[in-house]
Design a protein around this nucleic acid. Structure first.
Lengths: 247, 247
DNA sequence: AAAAAGCGAGAGCAGTGCTCTCTTTTTCAG
DNA sequence: CTGAAAAAGAGAGCACTGCTCTCGCTTTTT
């Protein structure tokens, strides 16, 4: 599964002095404790003072390591993105190279499993934005796009391999503005798939996260769906059909 | 659009004494101010003391009207659900009675428009749950299900009218557990549509909210999609195809 | 008119984020 | 090896939060 030790610490070469090593260790401890508090009480209840208590240190001391509460949120955000990315990569890599349908299913199931296991982290990444907190794009963009990059990679590889059934997308017209956006994405990510395929990929992407969010955030009633695994499987198979992925 | 005056106050008959009328008015003021704070600063930053200040009263006085912060959240939750429900009803009712595709599009666009206009309220309803806060089902279930009830109603009416193209759903097998859940829903809501249709309806439901959440929560990058209206329109048309709704 | 209930003000408690100063410890340069 | 510099921890303090309690005052009810 996911490693227990957070790796959100910048490893600029080898740690030299013992003080530097201690500092890195302390930051790692703060992230670990913060992750525990996040899992137990949620993001809004994340308190630097409580982390300091668990660390066995007075509250002002943690400010030597973490600039403020938002900085800790950023560290936890990056940590969670990488946990999720690792899980997804592992699951997708376990599938046969040419079995794009299985890869898609594995990716979606990995996201769902992680989300159910770490609902607070999932909320932090994909839920309502924490008020007053703006994630610094230059630090979170790369880990934050690992899953979507992987998903798009699967779809594009499937397209290149001729594994996408074009009959699934009839005469759907892509408006000009959207086509421009998609062209930019295609260029930036070196994709081959045409507009209709990319647009459907976006829909599949949002739909997968919509289904998972409904489950994690409790939007289905409490007792509406008992067979949630079945439900998700079914949703995936329909989305697979939307994509034209032959199962 | 939506009325400016919140109606989340229980109107048990006519207000009798002036004190009772003043009380109802004060609660309405608290909800109105709370809604403003919610829109400006988000749910987690909603402070009873700040509401008290805006109300021109000392902080402990609001506890005469609202049991605690969670109670205020519940009032705002109900208020927001009803705002959204009113907007959706109005939009759907404006369409021709037999034009189910237009009704579906109107519903989805109404939700999206409201969500973009009131992102904090949307987050409260459909985002990460507020930690430590559990919405009291007996007060929120009815307003909270207005949209989905309306959506299912559209789909079921379309099915009864023979307006759903069954060719869209090939040999998709519904597992036993999911079929049981769907049967329970069908019974409870007096539906006629078969399992495959209901299951697709659930997918469409979660997909619509997934797309809106991605937009409102900023999950697309900042500049990834400039033509967001086009994108949403396209997603709706694909989902319409998934449902087999003839446009 | 007297009793009861409702209401607002104020003090107070425990918690939060964050800053500042002071002291101790560690690192580094000469 | 010694003294300066840097880093770290402790503690006090400020402004804020949710919430409780008590004390008077006003309105309603009996």
């Amino acid at each position: 599964m996911t490693p227990a030790e957070p790796a959100a610490v910048k490893s600029t070469g080898k740690p030299q002095t013992p003080r530097e090593r201690a500092r890195i260790q302390t930051i790692a401890d703060i992230v670990r404790i913060g992750r525990e508090h996040l899992a137990l009480h949620g993001a809004a209840a994340l308190s630097l003072r409580a982390v300091a208590r668990d660390l066995g240190v007075v509250s002002s001391a943690v400010y030597r390591y973490v600039e403020n509460r938002d900085e800790l949120l950023t560290l936890l955000l990056i940590d969670a993105y990488n946990q999720l990315g690792d899980d997804v990569d592992e699951a997708v890599n376990a599938e046969a190279e040419g079995d794009f349908a299985a890869q898609f299913t594995a990716l979606a199931n990995a996201v769902r499993t992680w989300a159910i296991r770490e609902p607070a982290s999932y909320s932090l990444l994909f839920g309502s934005p924490v008020p007053g907190y703006q994630a610094p794009g230059e630090r979170t963009t790369v880990p934050g796009t690992r899953v979507i990059v992987r998903l798009v990679g699967i779809f594009d590889a499937a397209y290149r391999a001729g594994a996408l059934n074009d009959a699934a997308s009839p005469a759907v017209v892509i408006p000009e503005g959207l086509a421009a956006d998609l062209a930019a994405i295609r260029g930036e990510m070196n994709l081959a798939a045409p507009d209709a395929t990319l647009a459907r990929g976006v829909l599949v992407w949002t739909s997968v996260f919509g289904a998972i969010s409904f489950e994690v955030f409790g939007q289905y009633g409490r007792d509406t769906f008992a067979a949630r695994d079945d439900l998700f499987d079914h949703q995936l198979s329909v989305l697979q059909g939307v994509m034209g992925l032959q199962g």
